[in-house]
């Protein structure tokens, strides 16, 4: 609480965070995939273990991102959903409700 209003505290915090960002080589990322009119964009994604994917569903329809025999993220109409990538591999995914929607995720170590 005090640190938030103390300008010196804020400056130190910013410095620490800034330094951390420089030192840590592979920061986990959030990769955005937009869904508009039944299309995942981008359809192909390259990521690494620890990254997250966020699907942003712009349609007034419920979609999913469903890896065959694996994870499924439900994407309600006009809402988004996330998936943490915790294993490397190459994954095709589809929408369970509209299997003509197709995407691919390549997860590097």
């Amino acid at each position: 609480m005090n640190a938030a209003v103390n300008p010196l505290g804020s400056a130190i915090l910013a410095l620490l965070l800034g330094t951390a960002a420089l030192v840590v080589p592979a920061q986990a990322e959030t990769i955005e995939v937009t869904i508009d009119r039944l299309v995942y964009a981008p359809a192909e994604i390259e990521a690494k273990v620890g990254d997250e994917i966020e699907w942003i569903n712009k349609d007034a329809l419920v979609h999913t991102a469903t890896v065959k025999g694996g994870a499924e993220v439900l994407l309600p109409a006009k809402k988004s959903g996330r998936l943490l990538l915790n294993e490397p591999g190459s994954f095709d995914y589809v929408c369970r409700y509209h299997p003509n929607m197709k995407g691919h995720i390549a997860v590097g170590p």
Binding site: L38, Y97, H98, P99, N100
Partner: peptide
């Protein structure tokens, strides 16, 4: 596109 998805589903 929606109905083609339904057909496959």
């Amino acid at each position: 596109k929606v109905f083609q998805g339904h057909q496959q589903h």
